[in-house]
Simulated assay, not measured.
Amino acid sequence: MAPSHVLVPLDGSPLADEALTQALELFDRRVTVLNVVTPIDAAMSEGGILEPGEERREAARDRAARVVERAKTRAAEVDREVETAVETGDPAEAILGYVDAHDVDHVVMGGHGGERGSIARRLLGTVATTVVSEAPVTVTVVR
């Protein structure tokens, strides 16, 4: 059965952009794009790695707005519309929470390879691996 609500998590990467392209081509259904703003960890700020402050949070929110607006523009170029959402938190947890809260029945996302960890993590990326293993719906990973 074809999905009725497809979620495409976007992080601004080429693979995420390709996931949006695939979702728009494959599913003539409701598509929501989601960008997750990850809060700066207090330990990172305390360790002097990152400066805490509103300026950094505002920059992250601005970037999120650009990511979802670019998705709307890309969808319009193929005569489609997408709904947009921006959440704050751990990316995998935010994606899974959005799936549960908004009747999403399919996720299409980019996979990112990493250099450490299990073979699955290296092939898919940590966020994609978590979503694939924990989502109660079908997940398509674009590589």
Rank of each mutant, 00 (worst) to 15 (best):
M1C: 09
H5I: 09
L7V: 12
V8F: 06
P14V: 10
A16P: 10
D17W: 12
E18P: 02
E18H: 13
E18Q: 15
L20Y: 14
T21H: 12
E25H: 08
L26E: 05
L26I: 03
R29K: 09
T32H: 08
T32E: 07
V33Y: 03
N35Q: 05
N35M: 02
V37S: 00
T38A: 01
P39A: 06
P39V: 13
P39E: 06
I40C: 03
I40W: 02
A43Q: 12
A43S: 15
M44V: 15
E46D: 11
G47W: 04
G47K: 08
G48P: 11
G48V: 05
L50C: 06
L50F: 15
L50N: 03
E51G: 01
P52L: 07
G53N: 08
E55W: 10
E58S: 12
D62N: 12
R63T: 10
A64D: 01
A64H: 04
A65G: 13
A65T: 14
V68K: 10
V68A: 08
R70I: 03
R70D: 14
R70G: 15
A71G: 12
A71R: 09
K72V: 03
K72W: 00
R74G: 04
R74Y: 02
R74S: 13
R74P: 02
A75D: 05
A75G: 02
A75R: 12
A75M: 08
A76L: 10
E81A: 13
E83P: 03
E83M: 05
V86K: 00
T88L: 02
D90K: 04
D90I: 00
P91V: 12
A92W: 10
A94H: 07
I95D: 01
I95M: 02
L96N: 07
G97R: 09
D100K: 14
D100P: 01
A101K: 12
A101Y: 01
H102C: 02
V104I: 14
V104S: 10
D105N: 09
H106K: 06
V107H: 00
M109E: 08
G110C: 03
G110Y: 04
S118G: 15
I119S: 13
R122S: 09
L123T: 10
L123G: 08
L123Y: 06
L124T: 01
L124E: 09
A128S: 14
T130E: 14
E134N: 00
A135E: 07
A135Q: 10
P136E: 14
V137M: 00
V137G: 00
V139K: 03
T140C: 11
V142M: 07
R143I: 11
